[in-house]
Each structure stands twice: as structure tokens, then as C-alpha cells.
């Protein structure tokens, strides 16, 4: 057989063929997708990017009323707005990373059906554009935080807060890898979609978003600790609000968990990517 073919198309790829080189070559496309996500969201809106802030503000107010007020769930001494805002900010980022990844095939069937490019570009761009959104919400959080400091509230900050970028990374890739598995399965079996949409809502309550881990005990606590997102949420609150807890073991568990799921998801994604157009 002659040499020099730049492209060979075969029925089945090797199990793990990530095509990182191709991914790198398409970095401009990644940038374009990020840009598109951010620019198109607030086209023809009056408030524009302010909408990124309005949602967490109102949600926080609602949580303060329902969980803090009516239900009287403790925030472990931290001011309620800061406590809820931090939880909402992180949870939103995770769930949106999960969302873009899990819909990657169904939402992009039109484009995927016509042109080839490394499909991973799309979910990766989703992580990035949501990161921008999250950073805007982070600024809100910081503003409220400074406001509390000026008002004389005592808030303990410690060195573990330096790990914040790592927490964000963990949230993003948890969302990505779970989402990719779901996307691959839903491209053929649509049932999963319904399961996932309310499963996500339930899962929020299994994560210390609106409550601190300190209110859980015994069996409930053991179960909540199995959730790989728990250590991340707890560690962030520990770093800036002084409530919650920090454990290297927990973070290690979360990281390993993420890497395993990521590996599996990429395997499945690679397989699906080849023929999903026939089944979607």
C-alpha cells in the first residue's frame, strides 16, 4: 500500500483516540463558539449581560426566604446572602457544564451532520463560555462580600481559598464527563433525557448547596459524603466563609472520581461521535 495518506477513514477507531492534535488545530473554532455563546445570549435584550446577575440575585433572595426563613436551615453562622450566593454560583456552573455537554449531540445535530471537526470542541467551548458567566457572578459575590466586610461582619479567609481555580476546574470536568456520557446515551435512547432533567434537580439537594454539611449526621452524612461534589462545595465555603470543612482526602476522592468518569466518558464519546448521525 502506498504511503502518504493524510486521512484514512475506517469503520471503527481505536478505543482511545483523542485526536488532541486535531483539537488544538481547531482552537480558533473553540474561540468562535465561546464568542457565539456569550454574544448571542444578550442580543436584542435591554439589560444584556446584567441577566447573568439577576438570576442568582433573585434565587438567593428566594432561598433566604424559603430555606433560611421558613425552613430555618442553618447557614453555620455565615451571612445568608453570601452562603446561598456561593452555593448557587458553583452549582450553576456545574449544572450548566453538565447541560451543554449532555446536549452536545442533540443540539448540534445540524452542524455535526454536515461538517467534520473534533466534536469535543463544542462542550469544551461550553465550559469556557459558562466560566465567563461564572466569573461575572463571582464579581457579584466579591462585591457583596466586601460590602459585608465594610459593614463590620467578621469573615474568616484562609489560605485554602487559593485552591479556588482548582475547585472550578473540578466542577467543570465533573459536569463535562457526566454530561458526555449522558449525551452519548441520549443520542440513541431518548428516555435518559427525561430522567436526567429531574435527576439534576434532585441531585442539587444531595449536594451541600443550600445547607452546610454540619447539619447532617449519621447515615445521611455518610451518603452525602459519597457525593464527589460535596468536598468541593464544603472546601470553598471553608475558604472564604469560615463554615464548612476542608479535607485533602475529600478533594482527592473528588479528583480521582472525576478522572475515572472522564476517561470512561471520552471512550464512549469517541465511539458515539463516529455514527451518531445515524441514530440521533
Amino acid at each position: 500500500m502506498k504511503e502518504g495518506w493524510t486521512l484514512v477513514i475506517r469503520p471503527r477507531k481505536r478505543l482511545l483516540d483523542l485526536d488532541l492534535k486535531g483539537l488544538w488545530r481547531y482552537r480558533d473554532l473553540w474561540l468562535m463558539y465561546v464568542r457565539r455563546d456569550i454574544v448571542t445570549v444578550y442580543k436584542q435584550t435591554v439589560l444584556g449581560p446584567l441577566w447573568f446577575l439577576i438570576q442568582p440575585v433573585f434565587t438567593t433572595a428566594m432561598y433566604m426566604f424559603v430555606f433560611g426563613g421558613l425552613a430555618g436551615i442553618s447557614t453555620d453562622g455565615a451571612p445568608q446572602p453570601l452562603f446561598y450566593l456561593s452555593g448557587i454560583m458553583m452549582w450553576n456552573y456545574f449544572s450548566e457544564c453538565f447541560g451543554v455537554s449532555s446536549n452536545v449531540f442533540t443540539n448540534n445535530a445540524g452542524v455535526f451532520g454536515k461538517v467534520y471537526f473534533p466534536r469535543l470542541v463544542v462542550p469544551l467551548a461550553g465550559l469556557t463560555s459558562n466560566l465567563v458567566k461564572m466569573l461575572i457572578q463571582l464579581m457579584l459575590f466579591v462585591a457583596v462580600y466586601i460590602g459585608y466586610l465594610i459593614a463590620g461582619q467578621e469573615l474568616s479567609v484562609n489560605a485554602t481559598l487559593l485552591l479556588f481555580p482548582f475547585y472550578v476546574f473540578l466542577l467543570a470536568f465533573h459536569g463535562l464527563s457526566w454530561g458526555l456520557i449522558v449525551s452519548s446515551v441520549t443520542s440513541k435512547y431518548r428516555d435518559i433525557r427525561f430522567l436526567v432533567s429531574f435527576g439534576m434537580q434532585l441531585f442539587m439537594y444531595a449536594t451541600p448547596v443550600i445547607y452546610p454539611m454540619s447539619v447532617a449526621s449519621g447515615k445521611v452524612k455518610a451518603i452525602l459524603e459519597l457525593n464527589p461534589l460535596t468536598p468541593v462545595f464544603e472546601a470553598f465555603k471553608y475558604g472564604c466563609l469560615g463554615c464548612g470543612s476542608f479535607s485533602w482526602g475529600g478533594l482527592l476522592y473528588s479528583t480521582v472520581f472525576m478522572l475515572v468518569v472522564l476517561f470512561i466518558s471520552v471512550l464512549i464519546f469517541n465511539r458515539t461521535e463516529r455514527t451518531f448521525m445515524d441514530t440521533v
Partner: peptide, 20 residues
């Protein structure tokens, strides 16, 4: 050829960038 979907059997070999 444009790699939108994969063949069931056989092989396609090509030289250079393909745009569809």
C-alpha cells in the same frame, strides 16, 4: 468522505484537506 458518519465496512484513503 466528509467524516460526518463512519462506514460500516471498507476504508477511504485521502490526501490533503477535505472541505465539504
Amino acid at each position: 468522505l466528509s467524516r460526518v458518519t463512519a462506514p460500516t465496512t471498507g476504508e477511504i484513503r485521502a490526501r490533503g484537506r477535505i472541505a465539504s
